[in-house]
């Protein structure tokens, strides 16, 4: 062993263990805190509002007691709505964070680079041009997101390239104007339906939707967990990723899963604006600058549930769709991100 430049530490292994503990503790604290917040938001959404439930009543109804009005309202409206909020929050949050970390750019979230717009556009086309309704529209939305993602990837070039963001922003602008064109030629009735696909809302939540999203997430998230291990080395740059033996398909595989997560969420609730964009950097800032996909998912849940409650009950006597509220948060958030980026950017 060679002489070191510094004083020898008594027990090197213990020093390594101690050094590894700090960030892990913070990570667990962040996850714990976010789980508490998400649970609180869930409880508020389910128990409070137009019709207030006590906690014992909630569990009584959950386990089958039939109370007039109360049971129907909880089981067919409030509960599926809150559960769907959790699921789409997770999908948007995790999907967005995968985009941002894989493409190494906080601006490269699926709602900024046009993937969610792809879903919306396909849905609007299905509604207006083909007169479709229901599941067919949801499938069209998923197809639209995947198609736009593939197009951006093939035109924008390699993962890690800034061109992907530029191509995506151009794509968003093109799709937005195309939607305007479609809406201007559509009947009022179709426009009503189409608008649901442009502003995210948990309004139409029902159990079949919840089941479909839950099943998709149950398939996609474990796959993502396995692939996400390679993020630890792809973060170090393409050269080192290869040098450390990362699977070449891992970044693209993760992006595809993220596209599907986001597409499924859009199909269920419409594009809840900027949740995918805001969740990742927020979780990251909480975690001392280190990205965390699970943390981003939980931030997504907190954002969706709290925005839905505020929009539903706390803004005068009108109901504001959750996507309008999160969208309003997006602009100041982007400014925060830019201000923060210039002061703390550090690479190599």
């Amino acid at each position: 062993m060679t002489a070191t430049l510094l004083e020898p530490t008594a027990d090197p292994v213990a020093a390594v263990r101690r050094a590894r503990r700090g960030p892990r503790r913070r990570y667990l604290a962040v996850l714990g805190g976010l789980i508490v917040l998400a649970t609180a938001a869930f409880a508020v959404n389910v128990l409070l509002g137009d019709y207030t439930y006590t906690v014992p009543d909630f569990f009584r109804i959950l386990f089958g007691e039939q109370l007039p009005v109360a049971t129907y309202l909880l089981m067919e409206s409030k509960l599926p709505r809150a559960v769907l909020g959790i699921l789409v929050g997770l999908c948007f949050g995790i999907g967005g964070a995968v985009f941002q970390t894989t493409l190494r750019n906080p601006l490269a979230s699926p709602d900024v680079v046009g993937v969610t717009w792809g879903a919306s556009t396909a849905a609007v086309v299905a509604v207006i041009t083909f007169g479709l309704r229901g599941t067919a529209v949801s499938l069209a939305a998923i197809g639209g997101a995947v198609a736009v993602a593939l197009l951006i990837r093939s035109v924008g070039g390699n993962v890690g390239s800034h061109r992907i963001v530029l191509v995506g922003v151009a794509m968003t602008a093109a799709l937005a104007s195309f939607i305007e064109y479609l809406l201007s030629r559509a009947s009022i009735w179709d426009v009503q339906v189409a608008l649901q696909w442009l502003a995210g809302s948990l309004h139409a939540s029902d159990w079949p939707t919840v089941r479909a999203v839950a099943l998709s997430a149950a398939i996609l998230l474990p796959l993502l967990a396995v692939l996400s291990r390679s993020l630890r080395v792809t973060q170090l740059g393409d050269d080192l990723a290869t040098g450390l033996g990362a699977r070449r398909f891992a970044p693209d595989g993760m992006l595809l899963i993220a596209v599907l997560l986001v597409a499924v969420a859009v199909a269920a609730s419409g594009p809840i604006a900027f949740v995918a964009f805001m969740a990742g950097p927020t979780a990251r800032a909480l975690n001392g600058g280190r990205p965390t996909l699970l943390g981003a998912g939980l931030v997504g849940v907190v954002l969706v549930l709290s925005a839905d409650f505020v929009g539903h009950y706390l803004i005068g006597d009108i109901t504001v769709p959750v996507g309008v509220l999160t969208g309003a948060c997006g602009a100041p958030f982007m400014l925060w991100l830019l201000a923060r980026g210039t002061s703390s950017r550090s690479s190599s």
Partner: peptide
Amino acid sequence: TRDVARTLGLLPQQPITPEGIT
């Protein structure tokens, strides 16, 4: 590529330091 990575290491000219990494 994993097999190779157990035999052949590489330090590129400008690796990226992820933010906040210890």
